[in-house]
């Protein structure tokens, strides 16, 4: 499984790797296969028209913001932030879930299920953007990247730059890769706590904290030292799972 910074898999839009190791790494059947259809039907025309109407005075950013505030729906509580970071595998199992505005667990799961329905119906070689209004409320945007058996998803509102978010996913993955030396899904499954630590060094409170994976690694190394010195967590080698 090659995921070095240069040959990073899925660096583009669709290259999909896959070796036996990844396939079937999780044996649970995909939980809700048919969601994409019902989801598709829920996108209301009014919500869509919203998007194409910008004000004449070019203040569309702010205008849209006002709109979310006026119509609070589910996740949209405050503006200009990353709402959620979700990592799930291609069978819909969540591997990392972080919402920056608190949501009850049922709601989180519902969103993740719907999200999975949309993602798994996306073909290869398509854009990394998905219209997410129907799932996360009007004005939310969604960028995802598909690496081997994993989807990395960032949900944010329209005050963030889409491509910059995509870059951030790349930084996150590159950092994971440095941290786990050729990261694969199993690393992530068994070290989900480490994932949280890494994510916390990249995003805080829905804002980008650090964009240099070198800097993130420095911080992570410091933390690992701290942990070691007080006799604590270290990485779980991949071999555990095969036992």
């Amino acid at each position: 499984m090659e995921m070095g910074a240069t040959g990073l898999r899925g660096g583009g839009t669709g290259e999909r790797g896959g070796d036996g190791y990844f396939r079937g790494s999780d044996r649970c059947p995909p939980p809700f296969p048919n969601i994409s259809l019902c989801l598709a039907a829920t996108s209301s025309p009014t919500a869509l028209i919203l998007k194409s109407n910008f004000s004449k005075d070019n203040k569309h950013w702010k205008k849209e913001v006002g709109l979310y505030l006026a119509k609070p729906r589910e996740i949209v509580q405050s503006c200009n932030m990353i709402q959620a970071v979700i990592v799930m595998n291609t069978q819909g199992k969540p591997r990392l879930v972080k919402f920056y505005n608190f949501l009850p667990v049922e709601k989180q799961q519902e969103l993740i299920r719907n999200l999975y329905g949309v993602l798994c119906s996306r073909a290869e070689n398509v854009s990394n953007f998905v219209q997410a209004d129907a799932i996360f409320g009007p004005g939310t945007r969604l960028v995802y990247k598909h690496y081997a058996t994993l989807y990395f998803v960032f949900v944010f509102d329209s005050c963030e730059n889409d491509l910059a978010m995509l870059d951030l996913i790349q930084v996150f993955v590159e950092t994971l890769d440095k941290c786990f030396k050729n990261v694969c899904e199993l690393d992530i499954v068994f070290n989900f706590n480490k994932m949280h630590t890494i994510l916390d060094e990249i995003v805080v409170g829905g804002q980008v904290l650090e964009t240099s994976s070198t800097e993130v690694m420095k911080a992570i190394d410091d933390i690992t030292k701290m942990e070691k010195s007080s006799n604590a967590i270290s990485l779980v080698p991949k071999t555990v799972s095969s036992r």
């Binding site: 910059a164 995509l166 870059d167």
Partner: peptide
């Protein structure tokens, strides 16, 4: 691809 994304993020 990554370079493309980054440079176009700035551009857009």
């Amino acid at each position: 691809v990554n370079k493309n994304n980054a440079s176009h993020a700035v551009l857009f």
